[in-house]
Write a protein that binds this DNA or RNA. Sequence first.
DNA 1: TGAAGGCGTTCTATTACATCA
DNA 2: AATGATGTAATAGAACGCCTT
Length: 307
Amino acid sequence: MRLMAPDCGASLGLNVDIGKIVQRGHENSGSGRRLPVQLDLLPLGPSHSASGTPEPSSLITKNMFSWQQQQPFRNGSWTNSGSGASQSLGGASSPRGIDMNQLPLTTEFDDAVLSSPSSIGMMKREREKMHESFDLERERGACDLSSRGGGGSDDEDGGAGSRKKLRLSKEQSALLEESFKHHSTLNPKQKNALAKQLNLRPRQVEVWFQNRRARTKLKQTEVDCELLKRCCETLTIENRRLLKELQELRAIKAAPSRVIAHDFYSPLPAATLTMCPSCERVATVDNRSITFSKPGYSHLSQAPTAC
DNA sequence: TGAAGGCGTTCTATTACATCA
DNA sequence: AATGATGTAATAGAACGCCTT
């Protein structure tokens, strides 16, 4: 399902700017950024781990990120100890998918050249080809190490034009999620560090964050839509009420004296309507009396400005 | 100082694959 | 077994900001 953001927030005077909820958020975090009612989906501020105490998950602990600490996460309890053996990320416990995630990166080529699709001196297409060929190399290696859960008939051919889909392990997802809680965007250093921890290519980490931001924004948009819908309903009700009140006032004006006639559509000169500045109720004033649109506003009986 | 171009990054829309019911 | 729905990794292209010339 694709949810289109309604462009009615501004017209309703709501503090909702759906189109820019996430966009450039990290860049504007310090200045005049309007925020809608927020789901707790997006890390809006700087890491609260610096001074606060984020709740660590069972697997993820404080100072787990390599850009926050010197000791790499791979030395933790569940990470690959470097051998690429069974206890590595997403190891044998992963019920589905190939283990290409945990293949050890055996070359610096990855970080140096493939960390960004926009590396210097390379046309985009050429870089993509390098990515693809490098992926194929890795996948061939993966096929040697593990078999795909379902039909793996096309594993060997390299799939001209077919694209393999990696499934992140639970642990990898958990770490990425935890990282996302701290930073919805990563600088290159963080990206590379995280990629190393996860045994993924930096590009994969980058893509994961892109998609994660998109998911967050989609969810936030859904929440905002709900909010706007409720606002719209409330305003409709209020509008009805005000219309009714206006009709009553017109009826009062149309009446010869205090008698209320139910001619709701008779015109009333605006100059004869006076609003009480304190309670914001409207009184009709003529040369004989002051009549109020609703009973119980006798405090206006002397003069409309008295209250 | 402003314009132009290159580069890096992000966003959005979309595709393609994997899994599940 | 086939199929549609769903989730998500990956891709393409546009836009933006920053830097250099």
